[in-house]
Design a protein around this nucleic acid. Structure first.
Lengths: 123, 123
DNA sequence: CGGAATCCTACCTGATACTG
DNA sequence: CAGTATCAGGTAGGATTCCG
């Protein structure tokens, strides 16, 4: 049982709002190995726009998942790093990732089977 | 490290597409205790519209996460039940849920602190 | 009861251009 | 380099209505 995630403002729900944005998990994953600069993250998380990256990073900082450190040098340098809370979050995320690796082909198969059957009956 | 979830079509990314829709996790959570009928799920997952519930359920069936069983009785009765794959997915999900319960207040605190500081400097 | 079909809106997002 | 600002488009999602 996942508890009682059926009232709109339970923790689970809020977490889903947070990680459900598709990018949070990837960014957190990109930072587990150590701090990265803005552009570095953008390169790792392929497909993210600079705007969304900015937004997501800021909200993660706001949530205490990671810290932002700006070095006042002439070519600006800003580093993002996971907080303890963030590293903490990375663990269950990694389990999810493992599930994905192990079962995603099964999902694909199920999907193909479903579509095949569906196309057949759609005559 | 979350692996290499940075190419657009890795398993992790696909999983995020699946569970990132905000409702999947809640529906799966609602079904861990046993099969439920359409309306039952709708009641448990507060706030979901009938349309989205239908969509999400169907895509979950398609992905092999759960099964749909329609009983041909006069008041229609349809039950949804987790497959093994689905029960399997529920485990890492539960860990995430646990994280949420344990840390969401910390996130809230960080959020409040951030906002306070932000309002102060926004003069 | 368990959907399907339609309409309509809000937000999320990407693309682009500009700034310190 | 690391953002901010603006605008346009697509789409997830809600509300409503009707069907088997």
């Amino acid at each position: 049982m996942l508890g009682n995630p059926y009232d709109r403002d339970c923790p689970t729900r809020q977490l889903l709002d947070r990680i459900g944005d598709q990018w949070t998990v990837l960014i957190v994953g990109a930072l587990v190995d150590g701090p990265l600069r803005f552009t570095e993250i953008g390169k790792r998380v392929d497909g993210i726009s600079q705007k969304v990256l900015t937004q997501t990073l800021r909200s993660l900082v706001r949530d205490g998942i990671l810290t932002r450190t700006a070095y006042p040098v002439i070519p600006p340098k800003v580093e993002y790093e996971l907080t303890q809370l963030g590293r903490n979050l990375a663990e269950p995320l990694e389990l999810l990732d493992r599930w994905a690796r192990q079962n995603m082909d099964q999902v694909k198969a199920a999907r193909a089977a479903y579509d095949a059957e569906n196309a057949a009956t759609a005559s």
